[in-house]
Design a protein around this nucleic acid. Structure first.
Lengths: 187, 187
DNA sequence: CAATATACTTCGCATATGACAAGTAATGGT
DNA sequence: ACCATTACTTGTCATATGCGAAGTATATTG
């Protein structure tokens, strides 16, 4: 329940509403390498990670896998385009480790969203923050050097450095594993 | 009024609510090179462009100006982090041409958002789409070649190619003006 | 525990892209 | 209309980064 409470409890929310929200989630297990969502599929749920590590990735114009994001801790694992707009997902979502997650169905989400004002406020606020995070990632990518991006990652998401394979980290940083290896050496 | 109606009229909205929304906007004029927002400032409003062209830009780790986005047509010109989270803006917003825009104050926006359900629904929907657009831009940047990004821009925003200076387009595409000039030559 | 695969490092080499500079073209202000 | 500035192109050269391959280390599986 830790991950769930982490997100939903910090609100001016009463116990009855909190219970309704918690009831909307179902605990699910995934094994390493399982896909939560594949490119071109439409999502019908999102997840809140209780444990484990997930990555989102795409393929570039030369067929290379590019890690677009990592999800760990109590992160919300979601592909917005696919879930909210019902467009084919641009990304794949794959487990890098065995994972335990709370799953919430989109219909359930919708119902809660329209009946619990504090929940819709939470949703709005999450959306705002997601937009901020996305933009920051973009700006970092186009304005920092690879070395700076690597150092930021160490500082901001140390568990990623420890848990994820070098090749995933490298493409997340926009470089090859060879280059990342060289950067590491220079530190 | 064209730009305003473009955004707000396509709703199941009644005339009275539409009037209230329209009344919340004030027509403002800007000259070429004027800033709508500077880095590290906090925004108190957003704009809907009636005419003209705006760019957002940052500086990279070497001091180069990087165009992060273009706004034209009836686009909504907004810096989300700065407006909704009241964080210092990561970006500058600057007019590339003389501009006419509808300005709406954040307090006015808030009031409308909390009193007109169709407006808050519009806001939610805009947010979703903004997140989608941001993500697409990021994915294009890391997965396509510079030439492909240039061709997409020609296809999707031909007016930018015509109106904006080469250096702004080049940094938007993640390359130097020299490189863009060479790409153009090869077409 | 051995065998095999996967992960990571490091090398030499190729290449795309950037930096700098020069030249031409276009634009803007007085 | 002129001059100055800015915009764009094109050349040479430098360099960071990618590619392929080889070598070492670590992890996985039967």
């Amino acid at each position: 329940m830790k991950a769930l409470l982490h997100h939903y409890q910090n609100l001016a929310i009463n116990q009855s509403d909190l219970d309704k929200i918690m009831m909307g989630h179902e605990l699910v297990q995934f094994s390493k390498n399982d896909f939560l969502l594949r490119k071109d599929e439409k999502a019908h749920e999102y997840y809140i990670l209780e444990s484990g590590l997930v990555r989102s990735f795409i393929h570039d114009y030369q067929g290379n896998e590019i890690t677009t994001d990592f999800f760990g801790n109590h992160d919300i694992v979601i592909e917005v385009t696919s879930l909210f707009l019902q467009f084919p997902s641009p990304e794949n979502l794959q487990c890098l480790t065995d994972c335990t997650a709370w799953k919430i169905d989109f219909n359930t989400f919708q119902t809660l969203y329209h009946t619990i004002p504090t929940f819709s406020e939470w949703g709005r606020s999450w959306m705002t923050f997601a937009l901020h995070t996305n933009k920051k990632r973009f700006i970092d990518m186009v304005s920092l050097s690879a070395t700076q991006r690597y150092q930021n990652l160490i500082k901001n998401k140390p568990q990623i450095i420890k848990q994820a394979a070098l090749k995933y980290i490298a493409s997340y940083l926009g470089i090859t594993d060879t280059s990342l290896s060289r950067i590491r050496k220079e530190q």
